[in-house]
């Protein structure tokens, strides 16, 4: 039993490597520095466990009986305690402690006291249960706001400031970097970098209420050129609808409740309590990266957000007919 688990576990670990949200699947220097140390300590500790379990099992063969016992002044065994209990663990633990310190020093996760040296490129603000993202790079007219999907240039370290508007959250993209909490009144900083272009998923990692489970996260790393195109696109106001359906949809959006909470830049919709929708059509997911962004899900989300994310702060909105809903979704989808 015990041995089987010990033998099996590295295999299980390996099988986990390939998954999208695994710390072994390191795709950025942060995670890539942690993974080997983690790997070493896990393997070593599996070996230690195995040795210890064997040490526990061997003496079972030496049986005694309840009728007799050793003399009470019998000594011995001190060496075990001194060597196994004190010296070996002391050496092993000191080694790992130092390795941890060295790693930490080279590791760009910071508290507010270090903010002086860090000028954030991106400000991420946690909300129950979505992410507000401010791009702070460059002069004021180069800044913009988006939500839930964070784009970064690949191969380039980006500094993020992490805050929260309401309760505690934590920013965690396991394949890129360790996590750090987002605590109201306590801004934290993190340097994040992806080696290659690609999509990196993550998750809010501090319990923040009923929809903590659906507070997912997507970081998209792009080549320098693609990233530049993306920022250009993001700087544009919401796309002006051209097709009649989309024009009708815009009317639904603006006259309905949507605009009280959501913003679409360039339109009168200037709500600030919900994700910015200026470029919602370009995002891969909705509901804080929890559901695919396609027609079916969008229609369902608008009318039944509460079925997808029970308790989330967007109500079910059912006061329009089927045509209006289709128009609305068409409008949202062309907001690219």
């Amino acid at each position: 039993m015990m041995r089987r688990i010990a033998l099996l576990s590295p295999l299980l670990l390996l099988s986990g490597c390939a998954t999208e949200q695994s710390i072994w699947n390191a795709r950025g220097p942060g995670a890539a520095r942690i993974a080997p140390l983690m790997w070493w300590i896990v393997v070593l500790f599996l070996v230690v466990t195995l040795i210890m379990w064997i040490l526990l099992v061997i003496p079972i063969r030496r049986r005694g009986s309840l009728d007799e016992h050793a003399p009470i002044d019998i000594g011995g065994g001190q060496g075990w305690v001194a060597l196994g209990g004190l010296l070996i663990p002391l050496a092993v633990l000191t080694a790992f402690f130092v390795a941890g310190l060295i790693l930490m020093e080279r590791f760009p996760i910071h508290d507010p006291n270090n903010s002086a040296v860090l000028k954030p490129d991106i400000l991420v603000i946690g909300h129950q249960w979505w992410w507000e993202v401010h791009y702070l790079d460059g002069p004021p007219d180069q800044r913009f706001v988006t939500a839930n999907e964070i784009h970064i240039p690949a191969g380039q370290a980006v500094t993020m400031e992490l805050e929260s508007e309401d309760v505690n959250h934590a920013f965690w993209v396991p394949t890129l970097q360790g996590k750090i909490d987002m605590i109201p009144g306590h801004p934290n900083f993190m340097r994040i970098e992806a080696n290659q272009p690609g999509d990196y998923v993550g998750q809010c990692a501090e319990y923040c209420g009923v929809q903590h489970a659906h507070m997912r996260l997507l970081v998209v790393a792009q080549s320098a050129a693609a990233y530049k195109d993306w920022t250009e696109q993001m700087l544009q106001p919401g796309h002006t609808p051209t097709t009649p359906e989309a024009i009708a949809g815009e009317q639904v959006f603006l006259t309905g409740k949507c605009s009280t909470c959501h913003e679409v830049r360039g339109t009168p919709a200037r709500g600030h309590v919900a994700p910015d929708l200026t470029h919602i059509g370009s995002r891969q997911y909705i509901g804080a990266d929890s559901f695919p962004n396609n027609t079916a899900y969008l229609e369902a989300w608008v009318t039944h957000a509460q079925s997808f994310k029970p308790g989330c702060l967007m109500p079910n909105i059912t006061d329009f007919n089927g045509v209006q809903l289709r128009d609305l979704v068409t409008y949202l989808q062309q907001l690219r």
Partner: peptide, 9 residues
């Protein structure tokens, strides 16, 4: 062999 309850001062 272990002694059973060896006397102890």
């Amino acid at each position: 062999m272990m002694a059973a309850a060896a006397p102890v001062q």
